[in-house]
């Protein structure tokens, strides 16, 4: 799920930037430092939307650098256990398949794929039902539930399942119930 949250960060600025454009420089530095990063606690920082508050700077002894506490609003993507979301399949193999939902990777093991779907190798490996009506392959859109997250300091990785009601291939005529 995407969230809009307020975060705080201490930004160090070289004294050469002090002048009428100090605030612009700070904003640019915040964006440069945080956008695209990932923390286990707050998830992926997608975009900074606003810098709401710049606190009083503190001169670092000996260097002349100044540290400013900066509060900013940002859009983050943070997956949660139990969350249901839609994703795009990126790779299929006999162990299961990988899918992507925005910046996060999700692995669905073959134990968490319904039993009536079998792995089929070939040019385009896929999981398909015996009648061939439902087929999950690369670029398929799949609705899945996150059953576990592994949170590192700089990365989040998820395990998902499609073995539940209303999960599986999107636009699947036989889904549901």
């Amino acid at each position: 799920m995407f969230f809009h949250i307020v975060l705080e960060r201490k930004i160090q600025l070289h004294p050469r930037h002090f002048g009428p454009h100090l605030r612009d420089k700070l904003i640019a530095k915040v964006i440069q430092e945080v956008e695209g990063t990932c923390s286990g606690r707050h998830g992926f920082v997608v975009a900074v939307t606003n810098v709401s508050d710049v606190g009083k700077g503190l001169i670092r002894d000996g260097t002349g650098f100044v540290t400013f506490p900066v509060k900013y609003d940002c859009v983050v993507f943070r997956p949660f256990r139990g969350e249901i979301l839609e994703s795009v399949v990126t790779m299929v193999n006999k162990m299961g398949f990988f899918a992507e939902a925005g910046p996060v990777q999700i692995f669905v093991s073959n134990h968490l794929i319904p039993d009536d779907m079998e792995f089929q190798s070939g040019d385009v490996p896929c999981y398909a039902t015996s009648d061939g009506l439902v087929k999950i392959q690369k670029d398929s859109e799949v609705r899945l539930k996150i059953v576990g997250t592994r949170v590192d300091v700089t990365e989040i990785f998820c395990i998902g399942t499609i073995k539940d009601d209303f999960l599986g291939l999107i636009g699947d005529p036989t889904a549901g119930g």
Partner: peptide, 28 residues
Amino acid sequence: MAATTTEEEDASELKLGADFEKAKCLMN
């Protein structure tokens, strides 16, 4: 190295942890 906080999180029960309990969610 799973953080301990994830153990208590469960979106199906709306347990999102202290940081996100009151955060504003955004639709796609």
